[in-house]
Structures are given as C-alpha cells and as structure tokens.
Simulated scan of single mutants.
Amino acid sequence: MAEACCPASCGELIQGWVRGGEHLVSCPIDWFSTVEVREGTPLERERPRMRAMLGAVLRHLHLPAALGDGLRIEVDSTIPVGKGMASSTADIAATAQATARHLGHELSESDLAALCVGLEPTDSTLFRELTLFDHKAGAVLARHDWLPEVELLILESPERLLTSDYHRRDRRAPLLEGAPLLARAWHHMELAARNADARELGQATTLSAIASQRLLVKPLFSELLALVEQEALLGLNVAHSGTVVGLLLDPARHDRERIAALLSRPPFCQHYPRLHRARMVAGGVR
C-alpha cells in the first residue's frame, strides 16, 4: 500500500496570455486530495481519470496493463468539484505518485507534469515552487522559490464549470486583448518573488483577475474590488476557468474574522453562499 496527496488551488495567481501563450501560476492552499493505492479489487465508484492515470503510470514504468486489475484506488478529498480549485489535478497527480510508490518508484515533478497533461489541462499545484506553467503542453516557463505568508478567504459560488468545457471555448481574441494587463501582472509577480513582497503579489493577482473578466465574469466583481480597497487587503484572485474568488490577506495585519463577517452579508452571501478559510502552502505532491 502507498499513499500520496496533492494540494488544491484557490484558482490561479495569474493566468492569461503571458510569455507567448496562455500560461498560469496556481495558488496552492492547505486543502488536499489524499489517494491510497493498494492490492485489491478496483472499486465501482472509482473516478475514471484516476483509473486512467493508474494505467498511464504502468505504461510509463513499462509494466503490463493487466497489473492494474489487482490494484485498488481510494481517495479522501473534500475539494469542491467544478469550481476552479484544481480538484482533478490533485486527484490524478496524487494517484500517479501513489501508484508509483506502491510499485517501488518515485515520480519526478517533470514526470508528473507529463503524465497529467496527457490526460487533461493541468494546474501547477504539482510543483513545489510557484511555477509559470503551460497547462496544456506541460512546459515550465519560470519558477519562483518563495512561499508567501498569505491567508485567503475563498468565496464559493453554487455555479459549476468543468475545465474541459471552458477550454473548448474560442478564447484567443479576449486572451490577446488582456495581454497588456497580463504583462503587468507578470512584472508584479516577478517583483513579488524577488523581494518577498506579498503586496506586489496582490497587485499581480488583481490585474490578472481584472483581465479574466473578459473571459469569465465573476458576480459582484466591482463590489469585491471596492472591498479590497476599503479594507486595504493585499488583493483578490479568481479561478480563471472556474467560479471561486479569493481575497488575499496578510495574517499579521488583517482581521480575518471581521472580513469574513462582511462577506457573510448581502449582497455577497447571495452570490457566494459558502466561505472557506485557507492559507497558501508550497505546492507539490507529498
């Protein structure tokens, strides 16, 4: 038996047309999908892509596909599905590493990235560092070894959006229109990492979120921006291919409970009835 876990993401820190294509930096948080692989009969309720990932790992390790018939996958995850919180990436990345470990191997981050993008567009939560990632081709464009001291209040809408449906849309025109904002966002992101400056990070995420409105409108976006300004928060971020919004707080400066109380009132609670508290963590499959 072997186990692995991978963090969820509060949307993306940035996503859009930057450095020659649509790329993203995920926002890993302390919310995990934990997967166990062991000997046993496969469960009927297994998630299909997790079983597909088990088969992909067997092929990667040059092992017979029939070996999978005697392996059981069990998952423990409460990450919301269809909200832009990287639930699928967490599931399949953890499945990949748990499968490899059960068979006496350990997959590298590059192995995991290649395996995951072979199944679907993938979040950069599978990298330990903050990583600018081509979520379709699997290429790493930049890495920043900095873990921001940031807490998040995550506003969850009842609406769902499958990532696969989002990526089937023709988005090239609005992505290119947003490229100047993304260039500024990436500039702030690099400054943030270079100087360990969470305020610069908030500038980056907010600019990217503003650009994302061209592609996927978030309810009460202007009101949330006004709240960020009113309370002098670090900024906000969004799920660019999902429905959640995150408010970035400095744990040393901001009263998380007071901000949460404001968000629990109309009109916010009418569009975002569930509120989660989280903190940023290092990415990577544990």
Rank of each mutant, 00 (worst) to 15 (best):
P28N: 06
L224P: 08
M280V: 15
T95D: 01
G21K: 10
G118M: 12
V81C: 08
A239W: 10
V245E: 07
E36P: 07
P267V: 12
G178T: 03
P267Q: 04
L216G: 01
A232K: 14
R214F: 01
H276F: 15
A226C: 01
T99M: 10
H240C: 12
A193L: 10
C269V: 15
S241Y: 04
H135P: 09
E149M: 13
T34C: 15
K83P: 06
A232E: 13
R172E: 13
L107Y: 09
I154Y: 07
L54V: 14
M280T: 12
R101A: 15
D197T: 09
W31G: 08
P273H: 07
R265F: 06
E3G: 03
A56F: 01
A139P: 08
R143P: 06
A239K: 11
R171H: 04
E22A: 14
L63T: 04
L201Y: 04
D123E: 11
S88H: 04
R38L: 11
F127D: 04
M280S: 10
L247N: 02
S157W: 06
L107F: 06
K83D: 05
M280W: 06
S77A: 10
A98F: 02
S264D: 12
F268I: 10
D197S: 13
G138N: 02
G118E: 08
P273E: 10
A96M: 03
R45E: 14
V18T: 12
H240A: 12
L24Y: 00
A193H: 06
L224Y: 07
R199P: 02
T243S: 12
R258H: 14
L63F: 07
R172P: 06
L153C: 03
N195Q: 13
R38I: 06
A66H: 05
H240R: 10
E36L: 13
R59N: 05
T205E: 00
E229V: 03
C269W: 01
L224N: 12
V281R: 05
E39L: 14
A139C: 11
D145M: 05
R101L: 15
L115I: 01
R279K: 15
L61T: 00
P219M: 09
E223D: 15
L275I: 13
L262C: 09
H60M: 03
V117Q: 00
R59P: 02
R172T: 13
A278N: 08
T125C: 15
A137C: 07
D123N: 12
M85A: 10
G242Q: 10
V281M: 12
P219V: 02
L103D: 00
V140F: 02
R258M: 11
T122W: 03
A98W: 03
V281H: 04
G118R: 13
T243E: 08
S208T: 01
A179D: 04
L236M: 05
D255C: 06
C269Y: 03
A261D: 11
L216P: 01
A93C: 09
